[in-house]
C-alpha cells in the first residue's frame, strides 16, 4: 500500500478532482477578470478592447473615486491591526491565564462572529438611528445633545461609524485564534520563568508572544486582507455613501458591475483587489520572517 501511495501517478490521480475544482473555481476566474479588465464591456453586449484604459481611468477618474475607496480600505486595515488585534490579544492573554468563567467569556466574545453580518448591520443601523438610536438617546440623556450626530448620514462621521461594527465583529475571531495559541504554550515554560522571578508582563512578552508569533502572523494577514475586501457591513450600513465617504473597493466593484454595467471596470477592480491581497499577505509574511530571523 505504501508503494501505491508513493506512486506519482496515483498521487496525481487522487488530487486531480480537487485540483480541477481549484483551477476552475479559483484560478480561472482570476485570469478571466484579468482578461476582461482590458475591455469596455457592459456584460452582455459586444466587448471593445481598450488596453489598459480601465486601469488608467480607475486611478484618474473623479466619478469613480477608486483612490478614495482604496484609502478607506487601507485605513480600515491600519485600524484593524492597530486597534482590533491588540484588543483581541489583550482579551486572549486575560482569558488564557485561566480566569473564572473563561469559557463563558470566550463564548460571549465569539457571538458576534457567529451572527449573520446582515443582522449585525441592522442592529448597528438601529444603534445609529438619529431619532431613536441608543447612541443619540444616551447622549441626550446625559445632557450631551451637542454630541448627537446623524452618524451614518454625515460625511464626517460615517466612515468611523461604519468601521466600529466591523472592528467589533471580528475581535472575537482573532481572540479565539490567539487564545488557542496561548493555551498551547507549555506550562513548564511559564513555571520556569516564574521560578526565575519573571513577572506576568515579562512572561507574556518573552515567552507567550514569541511562541504564538505564527498565529499573530495569520491574524494580521486575515485582518489586512479582510479589510481590503470588506464589503458586507459597509453595504448594509451605508452602501458606500454618503457621497462615497464610506466607499471601499468591493462596494465600488459591485456598483461598477451591476449598477453602471461596466463589467470591464468591475473586473479591473476585482483583479487589483486580488493582487493587493496577495501582495499584502506576502509582505506581512516577509515582515514576520524578518523578525524571526
Amino acid at each position: 500500500m505504501k508503494k501505491v501511495y508513493s506512486n506519482k501517478l496515483t498521487i496525481f490521480l487522487f488530487i486531480l478532482p480537487a485540483l480541477l475544482l481549484f483551477l476552475l473555481i479559483l484560478v480561472a476566474p482570476i485570469f478571466m477578470s484579468f482578461y476582461y479588465s482590458f475591455f469596455n464591456w457592459n456584460g452582455f453586449g459586444k466587448k471593445e478592447f481598450i488596453g489598459i484604459s480601465n486601469y488608467i481611468e480607475l486611478f484618474t477618474s473623479g466619478s469613480i473615486g477608486f483612490p478614495k475607496a482604496l484609502g478607506n480600505a487601507l485605513l480600515l486595515a491600519v485600524l484593524s491591526v492597530g486597534i482590533q488585534l491588540p484588543i483581541a490579544l489583550g482579551f486572549a492573554l486575560l482569558l488564557g491565564k485561566g480566569r473564572k468563567g473563561e469559557r463563558g467569556f470566550l463564548s460571549i466574545y465569539f457571538i458576534p462572529v457567529l451572527i449573520s453580518t446582515v443582522i449585525i448591520g441592522q442592529l448597528w443601523l438601529k444603534i445609529y438611528n438619529p431619532s431613536y438610536g441608543i447612541l443619540n438617546v444616551a447622549l441626550r440623556a446625559l445632557g450631551l445633545d451637542k454630541l448627537t450626530r446623524i452618524w451614518l448620514g454625515d460625511i464626517k462621521t460615517a466612515l468611523g461609524a461604519a468601521f466600529v461594527p466591523i472592528l467589533w465583529q471580528y475581535v472575537g475571531y482573532h481572540m479565539l485564534l490567539m487564545y488557542a495559541g496561548i493555551k498551547s504554550v507549555p506550562t513548564e515554560y511559564r513555571e520556569a520563568a516564574m521560578i526565575d522571578g519573571a513577572r506576568e508582563g515579562q512572561i507574556n512578552r518573552y515567552i507567550v508572544l514569541p511562541y504564538i508569533k505564527p498565529i499573530l502572523k495569520i491574524s494580521t494577514i486575515f485582518a489586512v486582507t479582510g479589510s481590503l475586501k470588506s464589503f458586507d457591513l459597509i453595504y448594509v450600513l451605508t452602501n458606500g455613501g454618503p457621497l462615497h465617504a464610506t466607499e471601499v473597493p468591493s462596494t465600488l466593484m459591485i456598483s461598477m458591475l451591476f449598477l453602471r454595467n461596466r463589467y470591464g471596470m468591475g473586473s479591473t477592480i476585482a483583479f487589483l483587489l486580488i493582487i493587493l491581497c496577495f501582495a499584502f499577505a506576502l509582505i506581512i509574511g516577509r515582515i514576520f520572517k524578518d523578525k524571526e530571523g
Binding site: M1, K3, V4, N7, L9, T10, L13, F14
Partner: peptide, 12 residues
C-alpha cells in the same frame, strides 16, 4: 498486482 488494482480503482 496490488498496484494495478489500486490504480484501476482510482481511475474508476
Amino acid at each position: 498486482m496490488k498496484k494495478v488494482i489500486a490504480l484501476l480503482l482510482t481511475v474508476v
